[in-house]
Amino acid sequence: MRPTSGLRCADYKAPGGKLLRVRLTVTEHVTPPLITSLRLTGDFFMHPEEAILDLEERLVGAPLEARTLQERLQAFLETGVEMIGASVEDIVHLLLSAEEADTL
């Protein structure tokens, strides 16, 4: 097996929603891997916009596993942020579908 960079990428078009893209790095030595950094991009909407940094921060350190991701995203929305064109389920799906990428 070749060594990996730990970088994973995914694009996901939410049904009836917008295109979500993620690049994330994970620790490879535990199962499920832990998110060490993450950048969420796309043509969705979020109000207030600056909250995207809070969302990304909340996901760092999380295991790449549906229930925890869901809980963290739910807690994020409960701060009063509104997302349009992307749901909690869409983002969880996006993160879990991220596949190893060769290059940065």
């Binding site: 893209r21 991009t41 796309g42 043509d43 969705f44 909407f45 979020m46 916009e49 995207i52």
Partner: peptide, 8 residues
């Protein structure tokens, strides 16, 4: 858009 990656 605000959330888009420039290079992407």
């Amino acid at each position: 858009g605000y959330f888009q990656g420039l290079e992407q």
